[in-house]
Computed example of a mutant assay.
Amino acid sequence: MGGDGILTLQAGPLRLRLAPAAGGSIAGLEGERPDGGGHVDWLRPASTEGLAARNPLAMASFPLVPFCNRIRDGRAHFGGHEIRMPPNHPGEHSPHPLHGIGWLRPWKVNALAVASASLSLEVAASPAWPWAFAARQHFALERGVLRVRIEMENRAPDAMPAGIGHHPYFPHPPGTRLATRTQAMWRTDREVLPTRLEDGDEVRRLDQGVLLRDLDLDNNFTGWSREARIDWPADAQGPARHLRLRAEPPLDFFVLYCPPGQPFFCAEPVSQTTDWLNMAQAGGMGAAELGGAVLQPGQVLAASFSLAPGWG
């Protein structure tokens, strides 16, 4: 670990930087250009200011536990418990907390090797989340691929609802394209909460591959193929290049956050949709539309995904 608290892993041309104190985040994923022109950023690198402030929103990716996306007004009921999650977005005055708990707490380093590392987190029960849980992340660079495994374990004496995922930020220079297969997209209201599920134009365009400059989205997709391809054109960063995001169950849902005019976008593998607990209680939707899991005491929910960069 460096003096700045950053862990650096390396294997072949790939370098991974981790920021355990900033929510167990990834701070950067770099590779060497094949033309010898220096390095390329496969994820948006953490800013100097973000690292100093330990701000997960300025990182390259951060973990999502014990839920993904938003919970309406921070209120939900499950198994006789009431969730009373306060607003938690440091940059917005939204009543809808998002991304869970793990991204806003420092993680412990449990193991560190040249090309791998393991982090952990323990969270006590509270009014915000009435179940104690533990979370773990394992990062490994193998044969030019970053593999990430994230787990959460129910440490409470009764059943707990659970969601899990990661929140990667990718560079968005002009000409960036994204292709992925999904079945439907959740339309949202002005507060980015889901309202209706549609097999719309965005689903078809993503299936064919779309220029991201043509999209303005912050939406959940269902029926995800658990694979996405990003293509970047030749530019000052290097020759034409691509990256494949592959996930395993239960990461069966996909979030695309593509704000216009920004130098980044987010393509997130997640296990449940926004506000899934309240929507499930309302009825009419099932696991295929909402996702989410229920963990019995001592049970573990685990998820893995990989990022495989390449040239051409």
Rank of each mutant, 00 (worst) to 15 (best):
V203D: 02
L301W: 03
A267Y: 03
E142A: 08
H93G: 09
W224K: 08
V114P: 02
A280T: 06
G286M: 12
V203I: 07
Q262A: 11
S306E: 12
H89N: 12
M59E: 09
S306W: 01
V192C: 08
G165N: 04
A117Y: 02
L146V: 11
W129L: 07
A125S: 15
H167A: 07
A76G: 08
A134Q: 08
F265N: 05
L141Y: 00
V145Y: 01
L307M: 05
V255S: 07
D4T: 14
H96D: 04
D216E: 11
R244G: 08
V300R: 04
S120V: 00
G3I: 09
N110Y: 00
R213I: 06
H99C: 10
A247N: 05
P45C: 14
G12S: 12
L104H: 11
F264R: 03
T274P: 01
A303M: 04
I6R: 15
G284H: 01
L251E: 03
A76R: 10
E202F: 01
E202A: 12
L112N: 01
L141N: 02
E151N: 01
P233A: 03
S126R: 06
H138Q: 11
T48G: 13
P263N: 10
R241A: 01
E49S: 13
R72V: 04
E49R: 14
G24N: 10
V40G: 04
P95V: 06
L197K: 10
